[in-house]
Design a binder for these strands. Structure first.
Length: 790
RNA sequence: GCGAGAGUGGCGGAAUUGGUAGACGCGCUGGUCUUAGGAACCAGUGUCUUUCGACGUGGGGGUUCGAGUCCCCCCUCUCGCACCA
């Protein structure tokens, strides 16, 4: 047989067809309903990996499906191009980050093109283009004007390996999210975005994001960490100084028998008495010596030290000792905790350790707690006792009453507290967006005038990797006249966190060439919000929270009219593969294992676990090789068929073979029947076997449509088409029913098109159609009479 | 500890609202065609049982004519957060 399936030729043919025809260009066609589909854009590392293939294949199914359904689909692609790897590569190989980045972009674009993704490449941009970041600088100036961007000195997370500051969201288990080095604390002046102003709105809107996985919303809620409580003022004994605490349990205030401060609390210095100074210093040294990871890892013993000072319980008037405690955190609440040992487990342990007194103030029904006999704190509900005028109240009611009472005496007020901190955006790195600020000795921090934007990143910079902002050493860049007074001044040498760029790129795709501002409001309002966003779960509280925040900023600056950037979110699982390990030689490549033994030492190999593909585990499949061997359609099909999109996908070579076999089967089904159905017309009356096939055809159309649309059950959609193909092979009366066979074949080709577009375009053409397959549409066209062949 | 989710054949996974559990694929078994088969096609493949049949969705109870699915209790695993006051 002559007509064999040759993926390489077919794919090259249709990829150039799409390019020539500009099949996937999008415009603001208001006669159709818009559908904005977006996958998280990649960092241009230079090589695509299977995670990219899966992510973009998932998105491409939705894009092609929606287009066939008649939607006006926007499906853009670009590059998250600023960041550390470019700088590191520059230091290592002596190339310039810009050269490295743009070369990688070219190479990755070529690799992506081989997958046959239906992007509107005309809208492509890289975030390191001055045409992009200039608008980010402009937005910053507007934020600065409104007080939403500000500079302050504070203790910040420092990664010594990356030589830069990190936002709280970028610290995982006390380590840098990128390089996993332990993070230190450092006192630095930094720029911040006031995300805390939006904490409530970010929380409230989360309740309406019904198209988001609950898991992601829960993580964001947790991260924002809103808790209702009370701020209470304790006056220091024999002093006018005051210590503020935040508590969610004002009902236990009568049981507060001591006070715990964070070792970093600003009042520590003035509270420490002469007798206690030595003990406190020793304690402080001990705390400072503990590295942050150990402190975070949990089971740290509760320790503290008496300051020598006392403060007054505002309700009892009792003098209570002020301690420093290692478990009190300066960056949560006020850095001071009123300790109620009878009703808080940590305070209980602390009190027992240091012989401090306990007072029971909550008594549940049927119990009679006595302070001396408690073996653990009672944290449940009950009725107030030992609480003066509040005795007998239910503790929930008492929270209100005591808060009101304190408020009336100016000693406290109801308040809410958030775990969320403002977003620190300064980075002491070169390859990023320069922060458009000028420091003048007489005028202070002066914004760069809008007309002087962009503040371009200079290209002739020396990168040594020895620390300090590289831009600070660039005299020409740094020296500038103050825009206000004209005196010599210096530029800000820090750059933005690269998460700032990714916080609004989705909006810029609506108008990538717009020259009069960050966004063409008409275009942005037409396309936004993104109808379907697809990407990894790892950005649940970084990118996805920042992008929501930034969208609200752009809205409040009057640049767009949407509240939320992404209506529906799909978090796809990782691509995993079995690892193999030798006790002597570590991780092994598959070809280093023969008969379950290590080829280097003949020791038996331990059956590795299935883990995320990574170079270090030697379990990576290179998509380029895969495409070379099987073709892009097979690579796409496997990554869509082997698991539902949101689950982890286990790589399986035989599964890939199976998908390749299926495509050959589809190809053969068409070519074997081409002659028989050449003159076929639609069969209106069918019976017996033909009627059964007809039913199967239409059941499959329904099933595939429902599985793709909104549910993203691609694996079952593909399974349904496989069933139809099986039915085609089982169908024996084509000679009598050429029409029904044609209908069956055309249905298969059309239903598979979103998944494996190259082979489908080709077969569609072989079936006698001259327009591209997307023009045929999805459902309406399915039952329509086909065009006669030639 | 708090929050989210998951436990189904040898494996990946189906079963939209309670209605034939195991679709589809991989693997495996047998067959056809072949010089050959690691191609293609056909048949079979949850477990136990010679058969009839019985049993089967982590374990235990319950609701129901009917439960993988709903309710209660327990076990295990994954992910996220965590001295959060």
């Amino acid at each position: 047989m002559e007509n064999h399936y040759n993926p390489k030729d077919v794919e090259a043919k249709w990829q150039s067809f799409w390019q020539e025809q500009q099949t996937f260009r999008a415009s603001e066609d208001r006669s159709k309903k818009k559908y904005y589909l977006l996958e998280m854009f990649p960092y241009p590392s230079g090589r695509i990996h299977m995670g990219h293939v899966r992510n973009y294949a998932i998105g491409d199914v939705a894009a092609r499906f929606k287009r066939m359904q008649g939607f006006n689909v926007l499906h853009p692609m670009g590059w998250d191009a600023f960041g550390m790897p470019a700088e590191n590569a520059a230091i290592e190989h002596g190339t310039h980050p810009a050269k490295w980045t743009y070369e990688n972009i070219d190479s990755m674009r070529r690799q992506l093109e081989k997958i046959g993704l239906s992007y509107d490449w005309k809208r492509e941009f890289a975030t390191c283009d001055a045409d992009y970041y200039r608008w980010e600088q402009l937005v910053f100036l507007k934020m600065f004007e409104k007080g939403l961007a500000y500079k302050k000195g504070s203790s910040v997370n420092w990664c010594d390996d990356c030589q830069t500051v990190l936002a709280n969201e970028q610290v995982e288990d006390g380590c840098c999210w990128r390089c996993h080095n332990p993070v230190e604390q450092k006192e630095l002046e930094q720029w911040f975005f006031k995300i805390t102003d939006y904490a409530d709105e970010l929380l409230e809107c989360a309740d309406n994001l019904s198209g988001w996985p609950e898991r992601v919303l829960a993580m964001q809620r947790n991260w924002i960490g809103k808790s209702y409580g009370c701020e209470i003022v304790f006056t220091v004994a024999d002093s006018s100084q005051q210590i503020k605490v935040f508590t969610t349990r004002p009902d236990t205030l009568f049981g507060a028998t001591f006070m715990s401060l964070a070792p970093e609390h600003p009042l520590v210095e003035t509270l420490v008495t002469e007798e206690q100074r030595a003990a406190v210093s020793q304690f402080m040294e001990e705390v400072a010596g503990q590295d942050k990871t150990a402190r975070i890892s949990g089971d740290l013993e509760k320790k503290g030290v008496f300051t020598g000072s006392y403060c007054l319980n505002p309700l009892t008037g009792q003098k209570i000792p002020v301690f420093l405690a290692n478990f009190v955190l300066m960056d949560y609440g006020t850095g001071a905790v009123m300790a109620v040992p009878a009703h808080d487990q940590r305070d209980f342990e602390f009190a027992r350790k240091y012989g401090l007194s306990l007072q029971v103030v909550i008594q549940p029904e049927g119990e009679d707690f006595v302070a001396e006999q408690l073996t653990e704190a009672y944290t449940g509900s009950g009725v107030l006792v030992n609480s003066g005028q509040f005795d007998g109240l239910d503790n929930e009611a008492a929270k209100e009453k005591i808060a009101e009472y304190l408020d009336s005496r100016g000693e406290g007020r109801k308040t809410v507290n958030y775990r969320l901190r403002d977003w620190g955006v300064s980075r002491q790195r070169y390859w990023g967006t320069p922060i458009p600020i000028i420091y003048c000795d007489s005028c202070g921090a002066v914004p760069v005038p809008e007309k002087d934007l962009p503040v371009k990143l200079p290209m002739d910079v020396e990168l040594t990797g020895e620390g300090g902002s590289p831009l600070a050493k660039h005299q020409e860049f740094m020296q500038v006249a103050c825009p206000k007074c004209g005196q010599p001044a210096r530029r800000e040498s820090d750059t933005f966190d690269t998460f700032v760029e990714s916080s609004w790129y989705f909006a810029r795709y609506a108008c990538p060439d717009y020259q009069d501002g960050p966004l063409d409001k008409t275009a942005a309002n037409y396309w936004l919000p993104v109808d379907q966003y697809i990407g990894g779960i790892e950005h649940a509280v970084m990118h996805l929270l920042y992008a929501r925040f930034y969208t609200k900023i752009l809205r409040d600056l009057g640049m767009i009219d949407v509240d939320e950037p992404f209506t529906n979110l799909l978090t796809q699982g990782m691509v995993c593969k079995e690892t193999q390990r030798c006790s002597e030689h570590g991780w092994l490549y598959p070809e280093q294992v023969v008969d379950g033994k290590c080829v280097l030492c003949q020791r038996p190999v331990s059956f590795g676990r299935t883990e995320k593909m990574s170079k270090s585990k030697k379990n990576v499949i290179d998509p380029n090789q895969l495409i070379e061997q099987y073709g892009a359609d097979t690579a796409r099909l496997f990554s869509l068929f082997a698991a539902p999109p949101e689950k982890d996908l286990e790589w399986n070579e035989q599964g890939v073979e199976g998908c390749s076999r299926f495509l050959s089967r589809v190809w053969r089904a068409v070519s074997d029947n081409l002659d028989a159905i050449a003159a076929a017309d639609m069969a209106t009356e069918v019976s017996g076997e033909a009627a059964e096939l007809k039913r199967k055809i239409h059941q499959t159309i329904k099933k595939v449509s429902e599985d793709i649309d909104g549910r993203f059950h691609f694996n079952t959609a593909i399974a349904a088409v496989m069933e139809l193909v099986n039915a085609i092979y089982a169908f024996k009366s084509t000679a009598n029913n050429p029409g029904i066979m044609r209908e069956a074949l055309e249905t298969v080709v059309r239903l598979l098109n979103p998944f494996v577009p190259h082979i489908c375009e080709e077969l569609w053409q072989q079936l006698g159609h001259t327009d591209g397959i997307e023009a045929a549409g999805w459902r309406a066209g399915m039952t329509r009479r086909w065009l006669p062949m030639k």
